[in-house]
């Protein structure tokens, strides 16, 4: 079975809703290639509702930050308020910020 699965590698699926602004990771699936991964994603994750956008990425192409390095990786920003771009007023006409 492992041999069969090796020809159906894992893909990560990102979907953007019809009025969504960005793609959201919704899950993963197995497929032999990118084309079929998109088709399978449509069946599994969107019920083929029109107007959505699907991205598929081979799981092996994704590099993740390491949980072990979480503290040194993210901590420097947490306690330094001057690192956050929050010291100005947002004009009314700016959407989606």
């Amino acid at each position: 079975m492992a041999e069969v699965r090796s020809s159906w590698p894992l893909w990560e699926v990102f979907v953007r809703g019809r009025r969504g602004l960005n793609h959201v990771h919704v899950g993963s699936l197995h497929a032999p290639d990118a084309e079929m991964a998109v088709r399978n994603a449509r069946d599994l994750y969107t019920r083929r509702n029109e107007g959505v956008s699907i991205w598929v990425v081979p799981a092996e192409s994704i590099t993740a930050s390491s949980p072990d390095e979480k503290d040194p990786f993210f901590a420097p920003a947490g306690d330094k308020v001057y690192r956050h771009p929050t010291f100005y007023d947002i004009p009314d006409g700016v959407p989606h910020l």
């Binding site: 953007r16 809703g17 019809r18 969504g20 959201v24 899950g27």
Partner: peptide
Amino acid sequence: NAYQALAE
């Protein structure tokens, strides 16, 4: 959950 972002 991820689907909230997709649902209207």
